[in-house]
Design a protein around this nucleic acid. Structure first.
Lengths: 222, 222
DNA sequence: GTCTATACTACGATAGAC
DNA sequence: GTCTATCGTAGTATAGAC
């Protein structure tokens, strides 16, 4: 961080924005510091000054993303006290799960999420020092409360690990529409995901999530 | 391809294996031709000779992966004739969907899939010339029959696009356990996915898929 | 604080020896 | 066919001017 916390685009801030863009599109190795600096209207050496180098800038970019998503996600996540103290029934818990998934979808489907989605997925498959910030700020923040809600919904049918796996699978239903965007477009015959497309995706994911929550498990194979 | 199709590791073959490994771990830009050549026990210039350059080697690696997965997937996919001609009921179609998902999971969860999973996901988020080979060989090959089966299962409730979105969401439930591996390990508190873990994942995904298929949509929110 | 100039390393491509 | 040698480019880092 610079000592100057100017509201209007400081050089450090412009570098960060450009970094998210470039790292997201070309990855850590693919992006060039000169190109990032040029996009921010400055030169490469200011990256060294502000962030200590390419890796430092990358870490800062991931942390920035994590906190931004965290901000968006927080208002809809039940605080931890609600999960332990309050003992509302599985129906209320189900509604809460659907609300979380819905907001998660809303965040995921907006066009701006494309840049940072790439960063997150890359981090998933080859975790660097930045992964901790990402898990704590995004993935874990959603999975923990979801798992707790699922345990309540399951009413003893699912243990803690099983609930976490279920939470991940539910998130996967939503995430595939961002991570597998190229396949989505090809499979649906779309050129982009417009408002109508988003609504259709939202309908499908919420319907399937609802089905998963109300299922009593009679249809299990073998 | 070399003129010599030696069963035992030709240089072209060794280059291909090394390429899948390196490109998978560091991406197209991140991997270096010298390192790949060294791993294959040869020098950089043989890449030019055999594949015309770095891009050619990358394309060959992706195509190789696509055909290998296609081989594994093909036996369990219903041939297209079965989907149009035969008119078995939704129950048979449901069993077929579960079988496809199960085999898909089996492929996805095996440790060897880690290397090429990275390649595929990178291609998803920044499609290059190799994407066509990948969609035709892997993603499309699974989604098309799945969608057709879902249309039959839905019995008029879902149109073609909706069925494709549902197919993608179902695949997403499985894919998240490969793509989000780092989050999975962290959330479940595992150090790796052992046989027991795989079984638990398989149980969860198949149960949820089954729930989605049998759902009649009464629980839809709003 | 920010930029210019420069040092050094590694990349991919290619020409030519064997 | 495979390797060595070399070229041009682009990467990060750093010292120093302003």
């Amino acid at each position: 961080m610079t000592t100057q916390l100017g509201v209007d685009q400081s050089i450090g801030q412009r570098l960060l924005d450009a970094a998210i863009d470039h790292f997201g599109q070309k990855g850590l190795e693919g992006a060039s510091t000169r190109a990032i600096a040029a996009a921010a209207g400055t030169t490469m050496s200011s990256i060294t000054y502000h962030y200590g180098g390419k890796e430092g800038l990358y870490l800062a970019a991931v942390r920035h993303i994590a906190s931004r998503i965290g901000e968006r996600l927080d208002p809809v996540l039940p605080a931890s006290r609600d999960l332990t103290a309050q003992d509302s029934g599985p129906e209320a818990a189900s509604r809460e799960v659907l609300s979380i998934v819905d907001h998660f979808l809303e965040i995921i489907l907006r066009p701006e999420s494309e840049a940072w989605a790439r960063l997150i997925v890359r981090e998933q498959m080859g975790p660097t020092v930045a992964f901790d910030a990402l898990y704590g700020g995004v993935m874990g923040r959603a999975i923990e409360p979801l798992s707790a809600l699922l345990v309540r919904i399951g009413e003893g049918r699912w243990d803690d690990t099983e609930a976490r796996l279920k939470a991940l699978a539910i998130m996967g239903q939503a995430l595939v529409f961002r991570v597998g965007r190229a396949t989505l477009l090809r499979a649906a015959g779309w050129t982009d995901v417009d408002a109508e497309g988003s609504a259709a995706i939202r309908r499908v994911v919420l319907t399937q999530t609802s089905a998963v929550l109300t299922d009593r498990g009679e249809g299990v194979p073998r």
